[in-house]
């Protein structure tokens, strides 16, 4: 069920767009929904980040993964346990760009002989990198459709991405890798029992959705060719707020763009927001200097005081005096003889 429902949902979305576009709703799927989706995406994304940002970070709670800044002759691990902003930036860079934490597992290999053990976790790091970077490349490649003239990096990217020179049009490496990456991430979720156990429909849905987006895209490039000139016309139109649909476009194109719209609209309400959240995680983006610089908690309640020493002494004054412990107030004069008698009796 957890897998079936999201799968059916994605198929359903594809069918809606496929037949909808053929039923004369081209402008709905080609113009209205994309605009709507991008609006939801931008507004939703910002709202989510603002929602997070509205809550303060009351305490400085970095997870320290190396030696802290301590005595000058002890070598600090300035990246894994940063005490300065530049250290934090480096740490965040490694985390965001290279998925440092996921990579951590590999070290176990060296010590434990059998390679599979932490190998599986290293694979997770690898799959994640494959997926995210190919996705990034694909998004950047698509800039050629939305801009005229296209930015300088697009042809360069295009050249390297297609440098295998297999087939016409040339096969993009990123297309291969993203599909492979998705398949691998998906197979983790069905073949590894513990990952299967924890997976929710919300984990399968984006996988299916992105897989469908990538495969419709590939289909349009290699098999069921579409009129790129007309699509570029529409895309540039969309980007410049003067969208026009020229001619009859392949319904697959509408499926593709509808799925992308779905992804965009779904994004702010889903776990995909980890893209924004990773920058705001208090265990990673704070310097480990809380003993050096006082961190302020806006809701700290100064009225909350400890059980006071005066109350403490009131409760224990007698035994304290008897044990020769210094006291602030001393015993009342009257009772002074009582403990003395006690000791005498003993």
């Amino acid at each position: 069920m957890k897998i079936l429902y999201p799968f059916v949902a994605v198929i359903g979305l594809m069918l809606i767009a496929y037949f909808g576009a053929q039923a004369g709703l081209e402008s709905l799927f080609g113009i209205v929904i994309p605009y709507l989706a991008i609006t939801i995406f931008i507004v939703g994304f910002i709202r989510k980040v603002v929602y997070w940002a509205k809550s303060p970070v009351p305490f400085r709670i970095p997870t320290t993964c190396g030696q802290a800044n301590s005595l000058p002759w002890i070598k600090q691990n300035k990246i894994e346990c940063p005490s300065t902003t530049s250290g934090v930036l480096k740490r965040m860079f490694l985390e965001v760009v290279l998925f440092r934490s996921l990579f951590r597992n590999t070290q176990a290999d060296i010590y434990d002989g059998p390679k599979l053990r932490y190998g599986s976790s290293k694979y997770l790091w690898l799959f994640a990198l494959m997926f995210h970077y190919s996705f990034l490349v694909i998004i950047m490649r698509h800039m050629r459709l939305f801009t005229d003239p296209m930015p300088f990096f697009v042809p360069i990217l295009d050249f390297f991405d297609g440098f295998l020179q297999i087939g016409t049009p040339p096969l993009y490496i990123s297309d291969l890798i993203i599909l492979l990456g998705l398949l691998l991430l998906f197979s983790r979720r069905i073949f590894l029992p513990k990952i299967k156990y924890m997976s929710l429909p919300a984990d399968y849905f984006p996988l299916f959705l992105i897989f469908a987006i990538a495969s419709t895209g590939c289909t349009m490039r290699f098999w069921d060719r579409v009129d790129v000139v007309n699509i570029k016309h529409l895309a540039v139109g969309l980007a410049s707020f003067h969208p026009v649909i020229i001619g009859k476009l392949n319904p697959l194109f509408y499926v593709h763009i509808f799925l992308v719209s779905t992804l965009l609209a779904y994004f702010p309400f889903s776990k995909l927001m980890h893209m924004g959240g990773i920058f705001m995680s208090p265990t990673r983006n704070l310097a480990n200097n809380s003993r050096m610089v006082r961190h302020i908690n806006p809701w700290n309640d100064p009225a909350l005081k400890p059980h006071s020493y005066a109350d403490y002494e009131d409760e224990f004054r007698e035994v304290m005096v008897e044990a020769n412990l210094p006291v602030d107030k001393g015993l009342p004069v009257k009772e002074e003889e009582a403990p003395a008698e006690d000791t005498a009796a003993e």
Binding site: W52, S55, D203, W299
Partner: peptide, 21 residues
Amino acid sequence: LDKFRSLKIFMDCCVRCGACA
């Protein structure tokens, strides 16, 4: 949730990758 950003982020961001399991 209103007092701790950490709680909000940790509620929203997990992708259930299983690295912690």
